[in-house]
Design a binder for these strands. Structure first.
Lengths: 221, 221
DNA sequence: CGCTATTTTGAGCGCCATCAATTTGGGTGG
DNA sequence: CCACCCAAATTGATGGCGCTCAAAATAGCG
């Protein structure tokens, strides 16, 4: 039972029965903003980006999903964000109808969903702080610190931190331009806070100093 | 039963029994970031601001609460944001312990809470877009449009839109400075999109044009 | 009616977005 | 395996916009 993570005890069987799996290639779209929400998903491998867009094409990435994360926590009838694969990904799909039925039978399942929704809301609020009040280098430092923290939470190889997403994605996540993202990377590297074997791998050289630059209050540990 | 809004049918009685009420003066603090979460609240009158702060004093306001809104949707054990009164306010308080007990007995109550949490998450994501990708005038226009929409949702007098919060609060909500907020107000006024009888009352003169400036995709109506 | 806090307006500068060029990397076919 | 090609990332130069500092005007309040 490694294929679909984040499930537990008795409801596993019931879930397995209604579950289908899905694979996505790089940059493939899973759901589009505004589409009817017919299924919910759990990511089992890879990484997704959630984004909302303006009519003129500007885009804000609201979050990245890592294995074990749920998709569609925020939504009722329609998807409020688009979801695309950053890299080759795999996920489990559950029809919302049947999911709701299971949710009735297994209160624990519902509790867990609610719990994840609250966690997502807290994460979104922290992101608001980053977007609204941090300077570019601070934003990037926060991003690396938080991503690194999530990497260990998800029991993935901690160092170097993998950055599957491109600079454009990071820019749209942090509310800046690609050029500024790149320049901020260079600054952190020149201060020897990080090392960059290649653009998609970051070694955190001085974690304490990086957190200091990030300026975020550390939530635990 | 007008004192505590947003409640329904059979659980009203049970809720009333565990409920206590509380009043706040302007700028009075209700909960502080990091405090243990012992009670949940519903706002019945006035307005609250939710905020998170950086060690160096910078502040991001994550949202404003209007009558009928819940406080503490995002939190488990501790409050992840501070809550202060913008203007004189009144609210109902429920001990979390007893609230959880009621939540067991009345699934509908739990559903409604979960529903509000999802709505808050969607709102936070829209706020992320505003913070990350809009220019100052666009931010302010969005703010006015959304506030106006919420004012009618909450069945309050629609025009002029009341702005109980000061310019500093708006700045910390939109991720800009007081000066830029003020200049943006002036720009909107000079283009005759709004009128400002006084700093805390805005008349939307040209709603369509204001929405165009806001640049947000309209979610319905 | 005078005081203080808030808001608005003003001047100047620094930083980030923009535009542009260069370098690097990844992927494909020879 | 290497050469080539295109996309992605970095670096460079410039200008505009929003932040900072400062002053004036307005509002709110006793």
């Amino acid at each position: 039972m490694a294929v679909c993570a984040a499930l537990e005890d008795d409801e596993v069987g019931a879930l397995e029965r209604i579950m289908t799996s899905r694979r996505l290639g790089p940059n493939e779209t899973l759901v589009e903003e505004g589409q009817a929400r017919t299924r919910v998903f759990t990511l089992t491998a890879g990484m997704l980006r959630l984004s909302v867009a303006l009519p003129d094409g500007r885009r804000q990435i609201t979050g990245f999903l890592m294995p074990g994360d749920y998709l569609g926590l925020a939504d009722d009838e329609v998807h409020s964000a688009s979801a695309e694969a950053v890299e080759p990904s795999a996920l489990c799909a559950f029809p919302v109808r049947q999911m709701e039925a299971l949710t009735e039978r297994f209160p624990k399942l519902r509790d867990r969903l609610h719990h994840f929704t609250r966690a997502a809301l807290r994460q979104a609020r922290e992101h608001q702080l980053i977007l609204g009040r941090l300077a570019p280098v601070e934003k990037l430092a926060s991003f690396l610190v938080l991503l690194s923290a999530r990497t260990v939470e998800h029991r993935l190889a901690p160092s170097p931190v993998r950055l599957p997403m491109g600079r454009g994605d990071i820019a749209d996540y942090l509310g800046m331009t690609v050029e500024t993202v790149s320049r901020s990377f260079t600054k952190l590297r020149n201060q020897n806070l990080i090392a960059m074997p290649d653009p998609h791998a970051i070694e955190i050289v001085d974690a304490r100093a990086l957190k200091a630059v990030a300026g975020l209050p550390d939530h635990g540990s």
